[in-house]
Simulated scan of single mutants.
Amino acid sequence: MRTLKELKERVRRFIDDVAIPLESLDIERDVDALDDIARTLRRQAREAGIYGPQLPREYGGLALPWLACAELFEESARSLLGPIALNCAPPDQPNALLLDLLASPAQRAQFLEPIARSEKRACFAMTEPAPGAGSDPSMLQTTARRKHGKWVLNGHKKFISGGIKADIAIVPARTEEGVTLFVFETATPGYRVVRDIPMVTGYQIGGHAEILLEDCELADDAVLGVVGKGLAHIQLRLEPARLSHCMRFIGRARRAMDIAQGYVNERVSFGARLAEQQQVQAMVADSHIDLHASRLLTLHCAALMDEGKSVKHHSSMAKVFVSEAVGRVADRAMQMCGALGISEDAAISAIWREMRPFRIYDGANEVHRSALARRILDRNISP
Rank of each mutant, 00 (worst) to 15 (best):
S287I: 12
R254F: 06
G225R: 02
Q235R: 07
V280F: 09
F321I: 12
S316R: 12
I289E: 14
G225C: 02
G327W: 03
I211Q: 01
A260C: 08
A303M: 04
A241T: 06
A333Y: 04
A325D: 10
L297Y: 11
H233E: 05
G271V: 14
S310T: 15
A272E: 14
R248Y: 00
S349T: 12
A285Y: 14
S294A: 15
M317E: 10
G327M: 02
E344Q: 07
L224E: 04
N265D: 13
L299H: 08
D258A: 09
M317H: 11
S349H: 08
L243I: 11
A256F: 04
V311R: 04
M305V: 09
A350W: 12
I351T: 04
L218R: 05
K312V: 14
A347L: 13
P240N: 08
S343W: 11
M334F: 02
L340F: 07
Q235A: 11
A272I: 15
E217G: 01
L224Y: 02
D331Q: 08
V284S: 03
D306I: 04
S323I: 07
T298Q: 02
A330D: 06
R248N: 11
Q277D: 15
G308S: 13
G228A: 09
D345V: 09
G228T: 07
Q278E: 15
G327Y: 01
V329L: 06
R242E: 07
I351S: 02
L231V: 06
H245E: 13
A282M: 13
M336W: 01
E307I: 10
A260H: 06
E217V: 00
V264T: 11
L218D: 06
L218K: 03
D258W: 03
Q279I: 15
K229Y: 04
A346P: 01
A303N: 10
R252A: 12
V226Q: 04
M305Y: 07
H233K: 00
I351Y: 01
S310K: 08
G228E: 04
L274G: 01
V329Y: 01
A253R: 05
G228N: 07
A272S: 15
V326W: 03
